[in-house]
């Protein structure tokens, strides 16, 4: 059906970065650079003094590069290589966003991992009877890790917390299942 292919396309695009920011930054820098070179060419053709470097001098210094101070050339070359490698990585890496797809009936639904984490934290803290401020949850694409700092003197029932967290996760209907782990800190905190 076309709606399922539409839905698949939408969720795939929502899960990956479009690389728009990087592409626009690169395009704008290219435009600025080209505009400068173009201006220098016009100025040279009119026979006026150059803004920064005349086209002929640009060409000459590129050709006579080995005569330039070695340290500066090497440093600049290294910086340029690093920037280039960053762009290559940006172009080729999948760029997954911290989001999850929910299997829902009516609409294609994507949830930020942050929202999953905060919902899990609420349930974990009420199951463990720990202050919400002492509960932290991190959700990656396949794992959810719950960190609890117990209140001193009140033991935390780890299995109860982990079953509560698992029940919650199962109820969300995540397309890619997330496994959970509960860690209870050895030393508790007084009060709270």
């Amino acid at each position: 059906m076309s709606t399922t292919s539409l839905r698949r396309r939408i969720t795939r695009r929502e899960l990956h970065s479009p690389r728009s920011t990087a592409a626009i930054v690169v395009a704008v820098l290219l435009i600025l650079g080209l505009a400068w070179v173009g201006t220098e060419i016009v100025i040279a053709l009119l026979g006026l003094p150059a803004l920064l470097v005349a086209p002929a001098d640009m060409f000459a210094s590129a050709v006579n590069l080995p005569d330039a101070p070695a340290a500066i050339v090497v440093a600049a070359g290294a910086v340029v290589v690093v920037i280039g490698l960053v762009l290559v990585v940006l172009a080729l890496a999948p760029g997954r966003r911290a989001r999850h797809v929910l299997e829902t009936e009516r609409a294609a639904t994507v949830v930020d991992s942050e929202v999953l984490a905060s919902a899990l934290a609420r349930h974990a803290s009420s199951a463990a009877d720990v202050d919400p401020d002492h509960t932290s949850v991190s959700v990656s694409s396949r794992h959810a890790v719950v960190d609890l700092v117990p209140t001193t003197g009140i033991p935390v029932d780890r299995s109860a917390v982990s079953s509560a967290v698992e029940r919650e996760l199962a109820g969300y209907g995540l397309r890619r299942p997330v496994s959970s782990r509960v860690r209870v800190r050895e030393s508790g905190k007084v009060g709270a």
Binding site: P18, R19, S20, A22, A23, V26, A27, L30, V80, V81, I83, G84, L85, V86, L87, V88, V89, L90, A91, L92
Partner: peptide
């Protein structure tokens, strides 16, 4: 987008 990043990146390298 990715093609532009790839081409410019390879050129810079």
């Amino acid at each position: 987008n990715r093609l532009l990043l790839l081409i410019v990146g390879l050129l810079l390298v």
